[in-house]
Amino acid sequence: MSKTKLIYQNNPSPSVDQVGILDRINRITSRSIKNETKVQGLKMALNMIDLTTLEGADTEKKVIQLCNKAQHLHDAYPNLPTVAAVCVYPNFVKTAKNALKGSNIKVAAVATAFPSGQSSSEIKLLDTKLAVDNGADEVDMVISRGKFHSGEYHFVFDEIAAIKEACGKARLKVILETGELGSFDKVRKASDIAIEAGADFIKTSTGKISPAATLPVTLVMLEAIKDYYYKTGIQIGMKPAGGISNAKLALQYLLLVKETLGKDWLNNQWFRFGASSLANDLLMQIVKQETGIYQSKDYFSKD
């Protein structure tokens, strides 16, 4: 593996205008997604989910149940796609890997003193190593927001680069925790730093802070991805996480991706939803499109 050391260059990030961002999002949310477009979108969204459990109360049995759900979303409806990945804490990676054996579903692990990121760099690296050694396909790290707010962009950059190196073959998702950044300009700055430092994905939130993912924040991040793509030809993935629990909102996210980054990002290689309860709402809508009626929530398994 080549070890080119990435060096932080304090390039100014483009400024972001809040009014303009909200105007653009208003155009997206006033779109009407119907019929076959809706069904296609719902299935696409289902296939992009990182089915997540990140509770202090998580147990092996709970993780196994979630993995079963990931593989059997709603067997009553044939030919459904599966979710993209299951997302757990590092100590449950082995359990998840075992439970998902034989499927294409990836295992993602949060690491780096998730969710606050308040620990030493050594511990964050060990945390990452634990996840990777246990077989994680993907690592979801958090940036040091405190350092970011202090203007120590070098630190944030170097930390991401170091974690990326520790990930080896695992894909790295960098969580910006946009709910703690305070402005769109900061979100853009953090996106640029994460991308330049080697992120494979940039991700909005841990899900532990409100607000979590929003459409406007996601647009700011998609624009950062787009600018980087035009500059280098390298694709970076996007993962909004937290707060996306209904199908309509998920479809609006997909529309935003469609109109910003186009076809190459409309798949689970480059776009993910971090969510725990979104899947069932998508399923309910898919079944409704087929049968014309909403079924009771009790027909959809909760794991």
Binding site: K34, G41, Y230, G262
Partner: peptide
């Protein structure tokens, strides 16, 4: 380097 906007996921009327 181009963005491909021909997504095959077009909005139904």
């Amino acid at each position: 380097i181009e963005i491909n906007f021909d997504t095959g996921w077009d909005l139904a009327p």
